[in-house]
Amino acid sequence: MRETVHASGTSRIHRLNPVTKLTFAVAVTVCAFAMVDYRWPLLLFCVVVLPAAIAAGVVRRFLLMLAALWAPVAVAVLLVQGFFFPGAHDVIARLGPLKLSSEGVSFAVQTALHILVLMGGFFLLLLTTHASALMSALSERKVSPNVIYIVSAAVQIVPTFNRRATSILHAQQARGQTIHGLRGRMRALAPLMGPLVLSAFIDVGERAAAMETRGFGATRRPTNLTVVADSGAQRGLRAAMLLCALVSIVVNVWGVVR
């Protein structure tokens, strides 16, 4: 069973230093959020993020992850903002007492596209980077072990939760719990969430204790088992991406101030 969502491969994207990919994810996110125009994040996604996923050979899983995680968020944002946008005047449709406003839809589209770029950048990082490589790369940069642990746990939490939830669901179904229809799913929620949340707390406690007993945090400069490749070109690329992010912030501030 998978511990991370990492899809192994030998593409150039896979071979990049994890910090380069992390910088990419942060930079495209900052660039997307810095611009108010909704076409900008869409352009970023189509011209930068999606081609990168294609180049990495993970586009199918990338799109599946977006469909599973971004699509529900986008729909929720559209419904909430579209119908309940404060101070909206331009009503484009009515659904009983609810009014769909163009201001709300516009804001929802913009927000959903911002989130699309954010998720896209980080999904690309997760799909093309093994958690251990990311930890080693961060460790080489003298990042605090506590921060590395948090990043590592965040990377691994989705598949771990998914696996655990599947086991719990099977155990409850094996005792006659049905999950058909909305009512069945609602009834199945409590027997699922109880063990899931409790086991997550127990896991965190046990993992922390297990790591401490093996010397985690004893030194700020632990040695690494593997050395993650880096190059001058990648350092230059990271600087360029950070510069782009900085420029987009300046443009945003300048545009707002002006």
Partner: peptide, 17 residues
């Protein structure tokens, strides 16, 4: 199938809620 087969899982914490 649970009407015919009672399955006791190895990890009890997967089911106790």
């Amino acid at each position: 199938l649970a009407r015919t087969v009672g399955f006791v899982f190895q990890n009890p914490d997967d089911q106790l809620h």
